[in-house]
Amino acid sequence: MPPLLEVENLQTHFRTPDGVNRAVDGVSFHVNAGETLAVVGESGCGKSVTAMSILRLIPEPPGKIAGSIRFQGRDLLTLSDREMRDIRGNEISMIFQEPMTSLNPVLTVGRQIGETLRLHQGLSAKQAEAKAVEMLTLVGIPEPARRVREYPHQLSGGMRQRVMIAIALACNPKLLIADEPTTALDVTIQAQILELMRDLKRTVGAAIVLITHDLGVVAEVAERVIVMYAGKKVEEAAVSPLFRNPKHPYTQGLLGSMPKLGSSLHGDEGRLAEIPGLVPSLKQKIPGCVFASRCPHTTDLCRQVAPALEEKEPGHVAACHYAVKEGAIAA
């Protein structure tokens, strides 16, 4: 069976007064039906731009999307705006990070959930409201019949995020893109939302692309992971091998720089591993490996030749000259 979504050599560049910003520079990946894929990386690595590119939410110009994005066999980049509108919110929908700013403050929650249903499925206002109540029940909001007539400011942050999820799921999408869905929430509320997303995945069966910088969240909900750095995919693996045996020095650095809960009980309270330096500017072409300027194992080869993505173990891909098959770095 072909994958649900297949992204090939995606390049999203932005024209700026001082040069072209290569926010996403040749990223390929796929998402199978019903699976959860996490895209991890730090600010500016291109993970959100990748998500926006899939839905073609990048303003062109100054942006420019190249490559191919095949969804159920159709290349989204060749569709007309009208055809694309039929897909957004219907077949592919999105949850944004800020539940405060991504809801319309002057419309009731019910109207906002109903909007997609009326547009895509041609429901009447009354049917849409009934369905909105059903969706609020699904995402675990108490007293849905009352809440459906309330405005976003009357809801707490966690409830607003539940409403966002209800909107996203209203039309039964095949793919849900969640861009930092729990970053703005407190941990106890985050735990509720992650639990909800896991439950919904079982009941609704949509594939999820989860974009996040939080490796803890990744470990809890994802099945497969892509690690991005400076606009490129540097590693991809199923979730367990990635955490147990990361191949790329950047992934190793990220995992090492995170303090682990329970560290005081195991006595491992040394210094945190640091990744020295800064993410390189995306406006200059980097001849070699994008991570070379910060990598502890850099050699001349790394500075001159960009490493290709190589399968180091079955299903475990990394872009590093030295990440050998056993996982140790020869340097």
């Binding site: 985050q190 509720q192 809960l261």
Partner: peptide, 30 residues
């Protein structure tokens, strides 16, 4: 961290996502 003595602390600790996939842990969702 070894032995929280308030139910809120206990729930808070259990809610933090831990970067260890497949780890079995007790989870209290408030």
């Amino acid at each position: 961290f070894a032995a929280p003595k308030h139910p809120y602390t206990e729930a808070l600790l259990s809610a933090v996502p831990v970067p260890m996939p497949g780890m079995a842990r007790e989870r209290i969702i408030l």
